[in-house]
Design a binder for these strands. Structure first.
Lengths: 240, 240
DNA sequence: GACAGCCTGTGATTGGCATCACAACTACTT
DNA sequence: AAGTAGTTGTGATGCCAATCACAGGCTGTC
């Protein structure tokens, strides 16, 4: 089955092949069947907004395919990206559980497939399936952890250089991480977006990259980035 | 019963009078009894450290009396206070659920009474009592919410003045909030600690206070703080 | 009352980075 | 091939706030 955006739709969680490797999805069959009956499988194009910070929680979104940008933004338009969510993550979870407004905005940056569940249905589901409830607690812990890291990065790292170095190291350890000498990673974000991830300005990011290249720490080949001197990068990440 | 630190110890959760008004504690009798059998009621003096960021999770701490400072700190000693926890809050929760290290440090700033539960016991307890598990999810959502606010404050508010104004408004709406014209609040923290809450330096906080006084927005009477012009403060909190 | 140890107030100096302002470089459209 | 929109590179300028340094308060203790 093909969605309007050219994605293969995963028809059912029961037959989903990725299930085992995903935090939330690996539930007992009974729970999965119950989940199946309340979920709405949906497809979104790139750039769709799942929910906006401040809105009352409508429900949760289980991300099956594609990436979603999670951000908060100020009244003057300045934006901060908290993280890029990957498949398996449940979005809007804490708002659905607590009943408070969504605390951030979720926008797709790829074509995405998503399972939506209405809040009431979801809460009922949780009451009936304690395994799922525990999974939810685990997911929330994970989210909390990420938020704490962000707080640390924003509050305790002084220089923008330090934050950028930290980000690059995190990316390189996540992506690939082949043991060869020179880790490389695809730069899937613009300087503007990177700036929003570390809470600085676009120009500063550009200048920092220029500086890192001049110092032979980094090198670019088109949109792939090669880390030539990981040790130096690492020391930037801790010293500032 | 008197603890070594002059606190009345609450003997049992079953007879605890504050139970109803506390997020986690208001559980069905069966769950409470089970909880009762695995908890250790403990008293701490002011300044005790419950856990340190980076430690492997030993268990959870339900705060019954007193306040606890939750902070993260950098290698150079710079510290950021995330929040001051009040009775009813469960500390170390997300680490216990996820199994990852504590992401912050918890230190008492009053004499405190705490119910400690070992991680294994707690996880078993959660599996058996789905009501409790749901409460845990609620608590985690709350924590996540607070962390998100902190991220917003650190990442999007630029001037230190804005952050301080936000903090003061939050305090005044929490404490008292009597409808009389001039809300007042006890300054229970030093300038240094306030600085650590908004991610700035001690001197800056002092200067900001001096400025707010000069502009007739604030006034101090000993250690109580009177907000003379809440509108002005509010506009500082949004404009910067 | 004198001393020590905290907290608070305030000046002087400095640097990092936001901001403004363009120029150059891609990439897609028609 | 030219035109438009989004991205990147770089200089000039100015300001906020960190940092250093030191001078008072305030509290408790001996």
């Amino acid at each position: 089955m093909l969605s309007p955006y050219g994605l293969d739709i995963i028809e059912s969680c029961l037959t989903c092949k990725m299930r085992a490797e995903r935090l939330f999805c690996d539930l007992p069959t009974a729970a999965l069947q119950s989940f199946e009956s309340i979920k709405y499988a949906t497809a979104y194009p790139k750039g769709a907004v799942l929910f906006v910070e401040g809105q009352a929680p409508r429900g949760i979104f289980v991300l099956c395919k594609g990436r979603v940008k999670l951000s908060i933004c100020a009244s003057d338009g300045k934006t901060l990206i908290l993280k890029i969510a990957e498949p398996g993550e449940v979005l809007g979870l804490s708002a659905a559980v607590s009943g408070k407004a969504y605390e951030l905005t979720a926008e797709t940056i790829d074509p995405c497939q998503v399972n939506f569940v209405k809040r009431d249905d979801f809460l009922r589901f949780l009451k009936e399936h304690s395994d799922a409830c525990f999974k939810v607690a685990e997911q929330l812990s994970e989210k909390y952890n990420v938020a704490c890291h962000e707080v640390r990065s924003l509050g305790l790292s002084h220089s923008a250089a330090e934050k950028l170095a930290k980000l690059l190291i995190e990316w390189s350890s996540r992506n690939g991480e082949s043991q060869k000498q020179e880790p490389r990673l695809k730069l899937a974000l613009t300087h503007e977006e990177i700036a929003q991830m570390i809470g600085t300005s676009r120009e500063t990011v550009t200048r920092l990259f220029a500086d890192l290249k001049k110092r032979q720490i980094l090198q670019t080949k088109g949109s792939t980035l090669v880390i030539r001197n990981k040790a130096a990068l690492r020391s930037l990440a801790t010293t500032g």
